[in-house]
């Protein structure tokens, strides 16, 4: 693509759109890679999974997160602004009641938390939540 004025305008508006997503593009691509590795590039549905996270977390060291996806075999959590996007994977056994779990996670900065559920029929569901972090939790 030649760097004409028109192309530059297109590029810059795309950049603004990416920033408006509220995530760090450098880390976000790491998360996308990790998600693609998990799903094998399958399409991600939405709606059958619920991710509960605080809108504002004062302390990034312990952010309470809850995920629930009826009919899920496994749920994987990602944090796209952390140095390593993977957070945890919950695999549900035969005696698991509601396919839900809550835990506390570390967030380095304001970012999106993404949950991917693998359903019993092999499809994938996605939910994400933006969490604003006042004090980061990676001790860098």
């Amino acid at each position: 693509m030649k760097l004409t004025r028109r192309n530059l305008l297109i590029l810059s508006s795309a950049g603004v759109a990416a920033t408006a997503m509220g995530s760090l593009p450098a880390f976000a691509s790491l998360t996308d890679d990790a998600i693609a590795e998990l799903t094998g590039g399958a399409a991600l549905g939405e709606g059958a999974i619920t991710l509960t996270a605080p809108e504002i977390a004062e302390n990034g060291n312990t952010v309470p997160i809850e995920v629930s996806a009826p009919g899920a075999v496994a749920i994987t959590l990602f944090a796209d602004g952390n140095p390593v996007p993977n957070v945890a994977t919950f695999t549900f056994g035969p005696l698991s009641a509601s396919r839900s779990a809550s835990t506390r996670i570390r967030l380095a900065t304001t970012q999106n938390v993404v949950a991917i559920a693998k359903m019993e029929d092999g499809s994938f569901q996605k939910a994400s939540a933006n969490v604003k972090v006042t004090i980061g939790g990676c001790g860098g």
Binding site: N86, G93, R106
Partner: peptide
Amino acid sequence: QNVIDVTLEPAISTNPYFQFEAIV
């Protein structure tokens, strides 16, 4: 029989806490 199996990464907080449901 398994209820839940969790893989933890470094992004889990100090003193890991989990809450989940089981059928007995």
